[in-house]
């Protein structure tokens, strides 16, 4: 029922997450209109995954509130789950199952049965371009194939909002562009709202309509890529914006490393 859905797909009010003394997310206020591709940037440990986990109901906030697709994540988690898709930071399709089996499992857990399920699963395989390997074990797939499968898997039930945590991490340039195309396609055809996190400045620049840069759990800046660049100077790149607002320095590749301290990346999955 996209027409009756509220115009704001994601909103957070003073959203805060503390781990003991440590504040991972500090009074975040965000509002993402429907149909946007929204990018969440920030150095390692800035709180991007934490934000996504709260919005996908995996994690409880310490204080503040968030609504997704019109429902409060704390009060109505099941209603939120019916309306969202999620692609985690690490490749996490089940390698011991085939592509079809992964899709069927998700479909069944979303209450899709019978002919609808069969149709959706074959659509998803086509969408992911994996028809030829539909019955191969996922552990034999390349990273790009797994990511395409995961995007298809997360959108089987036609969610209103799709969350992707670093969807193109570790993908080659071609695989990366394929994922972008899939995401744009979902936005065009389904009017899906998409929130991604990324360390990839090009991805943020060309894919996202709007960006938020987090730094140490706080919202450092918010705006369209063009507007953010214009604010810094006439020839500024997004990398310049990033450096300015996050206190990080960039490597030549367009990714960056933290200046202050090296973060505990073992925790990446949390």
């Amino acid at each position: 029922m996209p027409s009756s859905a509220p115009p704001v797909a994601i909103s957070t009010v003073e959203l805060t997450k503390r781990y003991g003394e440590f504040t991972a997310l500090d009074r975040l206020d965000l509002s993402v209109p429907r149909g946007r591709i929204f990018g969440l940037l920030g150095p390692n440990g800035a709180g991007k995954s934490t934000t996504i986990k709260i919005l996908t109901t995996l994690l409880d906030a310490s204080s503040g509130s968030a609504t997704v697709a019109g429902f409060d994540v704390a009060a109505d988690p099941v209603e939120v789950r019916r309306r969202i898709g999620y692609v985690p930071q690490l490749l996490s399709a089940d390698g011991a199952l085939t592509a079809t089996e992964n899709l069927v499992l998700s479909a069944r857990l979303h209450g899709l049965h019978g002919r609808i399920r069969v149709a959706r699963v074959s659509e998803a395989l086509a969408f992911a371009g994996l028809e030829a390997v539909a019955n191969k074990l996922v552990r034999t797939f390349s990273g790009g194939m797994v990511r395409r499968l995961e995007v298809a898997q997360a959108t089987l039930h036609r969610p209103e909002v799709l969350f992707l945590d670093e969807p193109t991490l570790g993908l080659d340039p071609v695989a990366r562009k394929t994922v972008w195309e899939r995401l744009r396609q979902l936005r065009e055809t389904e009017g899906m709202t998409i929130l991604i996190t990324t360390h990839d400045m090009e991805e943020a620049d060309v894919l996202c309509d709007e960006l938020a840069i987090l730094h140490q759990g706080r919202l450092a800046v918010l705006g369209a890529p063009e507007a953010l660049k214009a604010e810094i100077g006439p020839d500024a790149t997004l990398a310049d914006v990033f450096v300015r607002f996050s206190g990080a320095v960039l490597d030549h590749g367009g990714s960056y490393r933290e200046v202050r301290e090296s973060r505990d990346t073992v925790r990446r999955l949390g």
Binding site: T57, L58, Y86, P88, S92, D94, G95, L109, G111
Partner: peptide, 14 residues
Amino acid sequence: RDLGIVHKLLVTPA
């Protein structure tokens, strides 16, 4: 859990 498979199951309405 380490692979994130649990997370995927948990974001479904099941």
